[in-house]
Design a protein around this nucleic acid. Sequence first.
RNA 1: GCGGCCGUAGCUCAGCCUGGUAGAGCACCCGGUUGUGGUCCGGGAUGUCGCGGGUUCAAGUCCCGUCGGUCGCCCCA
Length: 427
Amino acid sequence: MPCMADDSRTFSAPKGTKDILPPESWRWQRLTRLAMDMFALAGFAPIVTPEFEHTELFERGVGNASEVVTKQMYTFADRGGRSLTLRPEGTAPVMRAVLEHGLERGPLPVKVAYGQAMFRYERPQKGRTRQHLQVGAEGIGSENPLLDAEIIELSHRFIREAGLEPVLLLNSIGHEDPSCRQGYLKVLSGFLQEHADQLASEDRQRIETNPLRTFDSKERRTVEVMQDAPLLSDHICDACREHFNEVASALTDLGVGFQLEPRLVRGLDYYTRTTFEYQVGGLGAQNAVGGGGRYDGLSEALGGPRLPGIGFGLGLDRIVLALANTGAKSEMTEGAVHVYVVALGGPAQRAALKLATDLRRAGIGADLDLAGRSMKGQMKDASRSGARWAVILGEDEIAKGTAALKDLRSSEQRTVALAEVPAAVRS
RNA sequence: GCGGCCGUAGCUCAGCCUGGUAGAGCACCCGGUUGUGGUCCGGGAUGUCGCGGGUUCAAGUCCCGUCGGUCGCCCCA
C-alpha cells in the first residue's frame, strides 16, 4: 500500500483513519439509514451535536479515571485559548445538549438518536481506528426499567436486522452509594489487597485507581484470581436488584435472549445499574460491536438536576467488519442507476444529457457517458452500472424523435418515442 | 506507550536467500462488428520497487535509520 506521507506530491489519510469508498460505502449508508429509521419508529428523534466540546465536559462526564479521558482524547487549544476535545463518545454531549436547552422541562423521557463519528487517540488495530462511526440512542429522564428493556430490545433488533447474531451480555453495577456499589468496592479492594501478590503488576496498580476494571483483565494470573472475587451482583442494594430483575423479565417478555454476566464492566465511569454489551466473532482482538447502560448520575455530574437515563452506542465499523466475516453476500454493489443513456456522436451527447436529466427529474435513476467512450465502451459501462435499461440515441433516433430501448437483462430491444421513455422504463 | 509481521503497477502479489537494464493475474482503455453490454480473442497505457543514508563497478535485492500499514498487548464501539 503506497504511503506517501513524506512525499511532497501526494497525501495519505492520517494514521488510524480511513476512506470509505464505493462499493463498500453503499453498505455504510444503508446501515446508517436502517438504524436511524428503526430508531425513529421507536420514537427516537435525530439529534446532531458538535464534533468537539469543552474538554471539561468529558472530564466530568466520562470520568477522570477512565482510560478514554486520561489517554485517548484528541484535545487541543483553539485560538481563543479554550481547551476543546473531539467527541470520544456520544452520551455526554447529548446530555449536555439536553441540559443546555432545557429539554428536561418538556415531556419525558427525551428520546434522541444519532449517527456520528467518535475520535479516540489509540494505536490502530483490527476493528479499532482513531475515528469511528457510532449509531446510538438515548432515553433521558426516566428510571423505569421498561425503558431499559425498550432501549436494549431496539439495539438488539438493529444488530440482528443488520445481519449479525450477537450475544447480549447483561449486568447491573448498582449505584453510587455506600449501601450499594461503594460498599462493594471496599469489599473488592480488600479482596484484591489480600491477593495482590498473585495479580499481574498492571492490575495491582488498579486496586487504587479503578478496582472494577480488574474484571476486564486478560492476564491469566489475574483472571484466575478473579474467579473467586466477590461479585457486585451479590452486593447491590435491594432497589437496584429489583430494578435489574424487572429489566431481565421484561426482556424475556419481549423475546430478547441474554446472558447474565456478573463480571461485565464497562469503561465509562458514568454507568450505573443496567449495563450491557453485544459480542460477535470475527473482530480480531476486539469482540464488542456495541454496548450501553444507565447513567443515572451523569446529569448531576455535569451540574444539572437529577435526570436518570439510559442509552447505547454501536460501532458501525465493527458491524461492517463482522458482516464481512459472516460471508454475507455483499449485494452492496447496486447503485440507484436504472437507465443508462448511450449517445452516438458528439451532438447526441447533448440530447443524452437532456434525456438523463428528464429521467432524474421524474425520479428515475439515470446515468450516461461523458468520457467519450465508443459505443461498445458505453454498453459495457451501462452493464457495469447495474442499469436495467440502455437507451440508445444516434443520429437516426434524434432525427425521428425516437430512442432505441434495450432491456439489458433479456437483451430485447425496441424503438419508442423519446417522450415515452420515462413511462417505458418504469414498468 | 510496548512487541511481531509487511511496504514492488489502480488492486492482489511474484522477484529479494545466491546484487547485473521491472514482472504476473485482475481491473482499465482500444480493436476484432457502418451503431449494441455481461463470454471469447488480440493489442495498449501504467511504476522515483515507501522515504533517507551506507556498502558495491553495479542495489527492488545486502546493512542502518525513518515513515507508514497491519496484527497483538493495554483499552474500547
